[in-house]
Design a protein around this nucleic acid. Structure first.
Lengths: 151, 151
DNA sequence: ACGACTATTGCGACTCGCTCGCATTAGCCA
DNA sequence: TGGCTAATGCGAGCGAGTCGCAATAGTCGT
């Protein structure tokens, strides 16, 4: 816990919806209803959500909120460090709160997602660094393969 | 060496263009000029090629060959085990001969690609299997991060 | 060498997941 | 209350494929 996407100045974390809105405000952003609804959706379920998915939920409350607004807000919230996104093989980008960063294994056959502690990548990270000077980011892209049921 | 994408029945490898065409023929496929030109392009350079990229090269010889034909042939050649594809973060799918399968590190900042031996994933593979019953496929999707220059 | 059979092709239309420009709306602060 | 400008809705566009269909062309048996 306590880690977020690296490198962005002014990034911070938010444990509650109000914290997140406060963070938006403190950066000169405005608290709009689309922002609030989007954050509500994100805080309501702890899982991985696609933009489409979130749009449907937000639009249940306010049907006029456009998908492009969702994307723009997701981008902004990520810049602020409130959320992070990951890619699971084929299929759309998923977003979740930055408070729970972890690695992902995704089954190429059935699509099943397994959340794994980032520490499982420690050995690989070390080798990558010493042998190739490369710093891996195990969170951003999932590791693909086959789950127990499919292999 | 000697390993290819797992699981496909009838899969084989081809060391030369003629071997590959023979394999196509032996599976009831036809040796067409688009097939031959595509394989020529693939054998000519050992790197990672996108479909677009290959299309341009093929079309230099035969301008009428449509991009959809390229995609269909790439799919078929992969089914036969002649080539494999990988995904490098954002950006299009890349294809290369199955004779050199390896892992990939891709820099999220500058896009640089580092080819790494699959053995670097051995420790992770073992942990993934014992702790989660998950068999990783380190070739299909690249591991993202930062290269020495960008970190 | 000739058909017939059917794999393959070219073409165009379409999808998915975004991304962008632009005119309008609406937060926020004085 | 007004003004400044961030944010929004809308629609068009884009990259990377994917698909149905009618026309074409390899291959094989004779």
């Amino acid at each position: 816990m306590g880690r977020h996407a690296p490198g962005k100045p002014g990034a911070g974390e938010a444990a509650t919806l109000e914290d997140a809105l406060e963070l938006v405000r403190s950066e000169g952003g405005r608290v709009t209803s689309s922002r609030r609804l989007l954050l509500q959706a994100l805080f309501a379920s702890s899982g991985h959500r696609t933009a489409e998915d979130l749009a449907v939920e937000v639009q249940a409350e306010a049907p006029d909120i456009h998908i492009s607004t969702i994307y723009r807000n997701l981008e902004e919230l990520e810049r602020l460090g409130v959320i992070v996104h990951s890619h699971f093989g084929h299929g759309p980008t998923t977003y979740h709160l930055a408070t729970s960063v972890h690695g992902h294994f995704v089954c190429e056959e059935c699509g099943r997602l397994i959340e794994v502690p980032e520490s499982i990548f420690d050995g690989l990270a070390k080798q990558a660094r010493t042998r190739f000077g490369f710093t891996i980011d195990p969170h951003h892209f999932a590791m693909l393969g086959r789950c127990a049921d499919c292999s």
